[in-house]
Amino acid sequence: MPTGPEERPPAPPCRVTVTKEGPLLLDGPVEVALDDGTVVRSDRFAVALCTCRRSRTYPWCDTSHRRRTKR
C-alpha cells in the first residue's frame, strides 16, 4: 500500500549559518531554485551560498567577497 505524505516522518530542519561578511553556510545536500526557474543541486555535506553576487560560480560562493590586499 503506498505511503502518503501524511504518513512520512517530518524532515529534519535545514541548518543555515549566517556569516558576518561572507556566504550563507548550509548543511547539505541542497537544491537551490534560482530566479530564472532553474534548480541547481549540491550533494556536498556543507554548502556556501554567495550573498554578494560577485561569485563566478553563483549561486555557489567562490570567496570573491574577500577583500584583496595589496603587497
Rank of each mutant, 00 (worst) to 15 (best):
E31S: 15
V18H: 15
A11W: 11
V16A: 10
E7I: 11
R15E: 14
E21G: 13
L26E: 00
R44W: 12
V18P: 03
T38H: 14
R53Q: 05
C14R: 08
K20S: 10
V40G: 02
R66C: 07
P13G: 03
G4A: 08
P59C: 06
A11I: 04
T69Q: 13
L25I: 13
A33C: 10
D27C: 09
P29K: 04
C14K: 12
R56P: 10
R41M: 05
S64W: 00
R15G: 09
R67G: 12
R41P: 07
T19F: 07
R54H: 15
L24C: 07
C14Y: 00
V32F: 11
R71T: 12
C61Y: 09
W60Q: 02
D62G: 02
A11E: 15
T51W: 00
P10Y: 07
P29D: 11
A46M: 13
P10R: 03
L49E: 01
C52Q: 14
C61T: 02
E6S: 08
P12I: 01
T63Y: 13
D35W: 04
V18I: 14
V47D: 08
D43I: 06
P23K: 06
R66P: 00
E7S: 00
P59A: 05
A11P: 12
T51M: 03
P23N: 09
A46V: 14
V47G: 00
E21C: 06
R8T: 08
A46I: 11
S42P: 09
R44P: 05
K20D: 04
L34D: 08
P2W: 03
R53C: 08
G28K: 04
C61W: 05
D43G: 12
P10E: 11
T51C: 10
G37Q: 04
L34R: 09
R66T: 09
P12M: 00
D27T: 15
L34E: 06
T19N: 11
D62H: 09
T3D: 02
C50V: 00
G28D: 04
R41L: 04
D36N: 15
P9S: 08
